[in-house]
Each structure stands twice: as C-alpha cells, then as structure tokens.
Computed example of a mutant assay.
Amino acid sequence: MEVVAYYRVSTGAQEKSGLGLEAQVDYVHSAARQQGWKIVAEYTETVSGTIAPQDRPECKKALANGLPVLVAKLDRIGRDVGHIAELMKRTSLKVATMPLADNFQLHLFAALAEQERSFIASRTRDALKALAVRAEEGDTESVAKVARRAETLARGRTDANRAKAVEAVQLRVSTWLETVRDPIDLCIRKGAKTLPAVAKCLNEKGVATSRGGEWSPMQVKRAMMALSLSFAS
C-alpha cells in the first residue's frame, strides 16, 4: 500500500532541537517497513496543533495525493477530536504507533485523549489554586513555587518586569501575614497552646484567612512558621 508521510513539530523547542522530527521519522519509517507500506512522499511543517489540518500548507499537500496519510502519533495530525473527525471524511489515517487501527478506532482514541487533556487541565488548575492558597497563608515553600512560576510565565519580559512579578507575589503574601501577626500572638498569649486552639480563637474573633474563610490548624501552622511565632513566645 502506498502512503504519504506527514510530520508536524510544534513551534519552540521541538523546532529548534529537531529531536521531535527525528523521532517522528523513526516511528513512521519503522512502521512502514513492518507493515509493508511504501512511502511515496513526505511533508513536514512547523505549526501549532491547534490549527486545523486542512488549514496547514504542507498538510494540504499531503491530502492532495489522495493516499492514506501516515503520522508518527495521532497528536501529530491534530489534537482536536473535531479536526480529526473532519479529516477522516477526506482520507484514511495511519498511525505508526497504532498501525492496525482503522479510522473508527482512531476517532475513539482521539476522543479519549481529548478527555484526558481536559482532566489534566482541570487538575492543574485545582493544583495551582491550592498552591496559591498555601502561599497566601504564608507557607514559605509555596511562596517560592509561586514566585518561580511567576518568573517562568514572565520569560520573554524584561528582567525588570520579571523581578517586579516576583516582588509583587512576595509583597502580597508578606502584607497579609502582618495583618494576622497580632491576632495570632494574642490568641497564644491568652492561653491557646495548640494549633486547633489558635484556629478556634481566630475564628471566634472573626479573623478571616487570606481567602476569607475560617482557619484550620494547618493554616495556623503555616502562618506561624512564616511569622516565626511559637507557643513559647
């Protein structure tokens, strides 16, 4: 069977290193040898996977051959299940890592992969929210992680702007911590000798956490550590 090979590398690191392309070529040619497919043409382009296959110049050329399109992995042709479904109306797809899968099976794989990406994105958002909460409560390790994330996101900005981003995170955390220093210290001085006791004292006084909620013993512990407060003070 004659096929055309299509390779896609994302913009950025994959394009610069060439490793992404090299691995794809290995996958495709190995599968072709094993399955007895003859590669009659190869097309390569650097483009985001969010762009529909039919809108990519090199992919258009591959489709114009009227032959099955062979890719290394399914996400090289597309990450959107809708894009892949539309593509399957025009051609037969062959995937090197799943050489025996037909279009129907590949459609199912694409749907499952999209669902998993959605789950991962949701878990990532939840993890970042939890990290932000811990940072605002004074957990020093979380503060450092938030600062590093801010710096990473700021890459491409000037050094001055990156420094300001990190400084802003630290300032916000330290400012809030200072507002709860005296309430925590007073609770301790009035007889609260355990973390649950301090949490109860703060909640009874109506002192809110950084998120406006009630205190837990763990939140008290983080704040006390950040403020260098102890039950012996």
Rank of each mutant, 00 (worst) to 15 (best):
V25T: 11
V28H: 12
L131P: 06
V25W: 11
A226M: 10
Q14I: 02
Y7H: 11
L186R: 14
A147F: 06
T209L: 13
R222D: 10
T152R: 13
D75V: 03
G138S: 00
E2T: 12
T158A: 09
A72D: 12
G18S: 01
I51P: 00
A96E: 05
K94F: 00
I51Y: 05
G36K: 06
P183W: 00
L195Q: 07
V173T: 14
T124Q: 13
I120C: 07
R181S: 04
V25D: 05
R162P: 07
E137Q: 13
P196H: 13
Q24A: 01
A223P: 01
H29C: 07
P53G: 01
A199K: 11
Q115T: 14
E15A: 15
A113Q: 03
G66L: 00
V40C: 02
L100C: 09
V133G: 08
E114N: 04
K221Y: 08
L74Q: 05
K164W: 14
T50S: 14
A144E: 11
G20S: 03
C187N: 08
A160V: 12
R181T: 03
A147K: 10
I120G: 05
Q35N: 12
A110W: 13
N103F: 03
L21A: 12
N65K: 09
R155E: 15
E214F: 12
M225I: 12
S48R: 07
N203D: 03
E137D: 03
R125A: 10
S228K: 13
L177S: 01
L229M: 02
D102N: 15
E178V: 05
A150N: 13
T124Y: 07
K205M: 11
I51D: 01
Q105H: 08
Q24K: 07
R149V: 09
K61R: 14
T209R: 05
